[in-house]
Structure formats: C-alpha cells, structure tokens
C-alpha cells in the first residue's frame, strides 16, 4: 500500500505544468522589472543598467500627477477597506450568529451581488445613477462605489473565519453574565481578528487595483493610480511606468508576505 501511494498521488508532467504555470505568471512581470532598469529612452533597446526611471517617477514631469494619484488611491483604499470591513463583520455576525431568519438568504445574496454582477455593468449602472441624481463626480463618488464593491471581498475571509469558531465561546461568556456587546467585542472579535485582517487586506488591494468602475465614476482631474497609469500607458509603454509597476509589485509582495506571516503566526498558536 505505502509503496503505491506516492505513485498514485503524483502524475508525471504535473510538476512541469506547475513550473510552466509559474513561468507564465511571472515572465511578463520579470521582463518589465528588468526593463525598468534600462538606461534607454526607447523601450526596445538595452543601454545598460540605471535607476534613472525611478528618479523620474519621483522628480519627473509626471511625478506630481502620480503622487496625487497615489495619495488618492491609498486614502480611498484605506477608507473603503475599513468601512467595508466593519460592515462585513457586522453582516457576518448577523448571518452566521443570528439564527435562522427570513432575510438571511436574501442578505447573503445582496452581499455577494457585487461579485456576481460583471464589473462593467456595475460601472455603467453607477455612472447612470450618479448622473441621474445629479451628484458631482469626484473622490467621494469613487469612495462610495469602492465601499460597496469591497463589502463581499471583506466578507468572504471574515465569514470563513467565523465558521471555524465554535459558538460555545460567546455562549460561555454570556453564561458568565457578559452582555451581548461584551461577548462580541471581548470574545468574538479577537477570535475573528485574523479573518478581519485578511478581509481588510483583500478589500484594500481590490480597491487599490480597481480601474473599470473608477474610470466610469471619477470626476474631472481626479485620478487614482490605476486611471493615471492607464492614461500614461495608453500612449505606449514608457520606462517610468515600468518603474512604477516594479515598485507596486514590491509593495504587493510585502503586503502579501505580511498577511501570510500574520495568518501563519495565528495558525501556530
């Protein structure tokens, strides 16, 4: 039996395909990373290693635009992720700890709605909506749209975590005369923290990355990082864009590593 098991689990070629899969995933990004260090103005010729495009990002003609765009993106992602995480945590508590009730399935459906509706449809609908009610489009409209579509992304890890927590914990607390609010803040919330953190991170990244909806609801002169990048790459791939993408890749790696370390620390406890 034991002799056969390694044989059964492995399919030849699967490892090769996995390596190929990772190669496909990384090849374009690595190429861009390499070319971001290219000294040449042209993207086609290699003229030696240099950091000039990184300097260009911070000091060049477009640097102000990208600085503002980056600030907008981070502020929006911060607020949208925080607001949607709070709402998603409450909603998960109601749906998973609120017993059986009439609107339970409907609530879950509503929360997953932004995931099921194709992004372009949400974008068009939101544009029509803001246009019809006559709201001036700007940072606030982007923020509102982001909060809404971030809710399901925050909800998923939070509810997954909550499903793994036995209800006996809060019940025990309440048996010891803790109020419901205390049972929530002192017992359930700390237990859910890893889920809440990964929910927040997911929402944060999704907001930071969003282009389609933002592009439809943004106002005059208001740019987020993705729309600013789109504005630049539309006219061709420039070396400073490659430098920006390499830095974004760096930020993403750091964020993912952090969230992974947090969840691992938690699992080891």
């Amino acid at each position: 039996m034991a002799m056969k098991s390694y044989d059964l689990r492995q399919y030849p070629s699967f490892k090769a395909i996995t390596i190929f899969c990772l190669f496909i995933l990384y090849a374009p990004l690595l190429v861009v990373t390499v070319y971001s260090f290219n000294d040449s103005v042209s993207i086609t010729n290699w003229e030696g290693v240099s950091l000039r495009w990184y300097a260009e990002v911070f000091t060049g003609a477009e640097s102000e635009k990208f600085k503002i765009a980056a600030r907008n993106s981070f502020v929006i992602a911060l607020i949208a992720a925080s607001a949607s995480t709070v709402m998603a945590t409450f909603a998960a508590t109601a749906i998973l700890r609120g017993g059986r009730f009439k609107l339970r399935t409907a609530s879950f459906g509503l929360i997953s709605l932004p995931l099921m509706v194709p992004e372009i449809v949400t974008a068009v609908a939101t544009l029509i909506f803001f246009n019809a009610i006559g709201v001036d489009r700007g940072l606030i409209t982007i923020l509102l749209a982001h909060i809404a579509f971030c809710i399901p992304f925050a909800y998923l890890p939070i509810s997954a975590r909550m499903q793994g927590i036995e209800a006996t914990y809060e019940q025990a607390a309440m048996d010891l005369y803790a109020t419901r609010a205390k049972a929530f803040t002192r017992v359930l919330l700390p237990l859910m923290m890893p889920g809440i953190i990964s929910g927040w991170l997911l929402a944060f990244i999704v907001s930071l990355d969003d282009f389609i909806i933002t592009n439809f609801v943004k106002g005059a002169g208001v740019e987020t990082l993705p729309t600013a990048i789109f504005g630049s790459v539309k006219q061709g791939i420039k070396p400073n864009i490659m430098a920006i993408s390499t830095m974004l890749l760096g930020v993403s790696v750091v964020m993912v590593t952090l969230s992974w370390l947090i969840s691992r620390r938690d699992n080891n406890k």
Binding site: N72, I79, V86, L139
Partner: peptide, 28 residues
C-alpha cells in the same frame, strides 16, 4: 481595533476634504 479603525477613517476623511477644499484659484 475599533478605535484604530475609527481614527484612521477620520484622519483619511480629513485628508480627502482638505484636498477638495483647495477650490479657490483653479483652472480645470
């Protein structure tokens, strides 16, 4: 945690409104 979130939101909201309040002397 909640208070941290609260203050972050408040701080961030301030940044946004501060940015929007610079409306004088503009050309779009």
């Amino acid at each position: 945690m909640k208070s941290i979130i609260k203050s972050t939101v408040a701080a961030a909201a301030l940044t946004v409104t501060a940015g929007a309040a610079l409306a004088e002397g503009q050309l779009v």
